[in-house]
């Protein structure tokens, strides 16, 4: 690519990524924060393209922008409006900023100072095929372990989020108790809510 085009692309994408990330810190509303996150993710996908890693760029868009951000939005939707506050914790903000500054200075110094012996060779072509083959040939074990990990995460997330009836009964009872102000209810002897007892006999029609 011509130098001018490359420069334009790199600097605009860098601005987009860092701008998005910093806006996350500033924005008050959590949903705004997620949308700024999506913008910086797209910026990073563009940066991958400038590094001619097109398979990774497309995977990044597919997974981060397509799935993870929507997952976060779902999580935010499931918690009520009162929890959508994206504000910083003022007390711990100060020391945190200090630590981050320290980390930043050290990493930047290392990044700029050391001589990485960078060499600019031709980029890989047809990366999708190469990555696929290497995943199956050299990295077959991590590939399988990754599969197991993903399934475990899937099952775990569902098990955690799912709410079976017994939990619901405990939860509803504790809410009701708080309403009536009798203090907390120990979950052991929770009486199930009386189910409508008059089972209407419908043998007539069917």
């Amino acid at each position: 690519m011509s130098d001018f085009g490359f420069h334009l692309a790199f600097w605009s994408l860098a601005a987009m990524t860092l701008g998005g990330a910093s806006m996350i810190i500033i924005s008050r509303n959590l949903i705004h924060a997620v949308i700024w996150l999506v913008m910086s993710m797209l910026g990073i996908a563009g940066l991958y393209l400038t590094l001619s890693a097109d398979f990774i760029a497309v995977v990044q868009v597919l997974i981060y922008v397509g799935a993870i951000s929507v997952l976060m939005l779902f999580a935010i939707m499931l918690t009520p409006r009162a929890e959508r506050d994206n504000s910083q914790n003022i007390k711990t903000g100060g020391p945190a900023a200090l630590v981050v500054l320290l980390v930043m200075i050290s990493t930047l110094w290392v990044a700029i100072d050391t001589d990485w012996g960078a060499v600019r060779e031709a980029a890989l072509t047809d990366q999708a095929r190469l990555i696929g083959e290497s995943l199956i040939k050299h990295y077959i074990l991590p590939f399988e372990i990754g599969a197991v990990l993903l399934t475990a995460a899937l099952v775990g997330a569902i098990a955690l989020a799912r709410q079976d009836d017994e939990d619901a009964a405990v939860h509803a009872a504790s809410l009701q108790a708080e309403l009536d102000g009798e203090g907390s209810v120990d979950p052991v002897n929770v009486v199930d809510p009386p189910i409508a007892s008059e089972a209407s006999d419908t043998e007539a029609a069917s």
């Binding site: 949903i31 949308i35 999506v38 097109d54 398979f55 497309v58 995977v59 868009v61 597919l62 922008v65 397509g66 799935a67 951000s69 929507v70 939005l73 939707m77 047809d126 990366q127 999708a128 095929r129």
Partner: peptide, 25 residues
């Protein structure tokens, strides 16, 4: 003519979901 054309198609159609959510919310 990307050699990851099919994946590109799926990734881009995935982002449309986010825009629809923004509009609705």
């Amino acid at each position: 003519d990307l050699n990851v054309g099919v994946l590109f198609l799926l990734a881009v159609s995935g982002t449309a979901v986010l825009v629809i959510f923004m509009a609705g919310w």
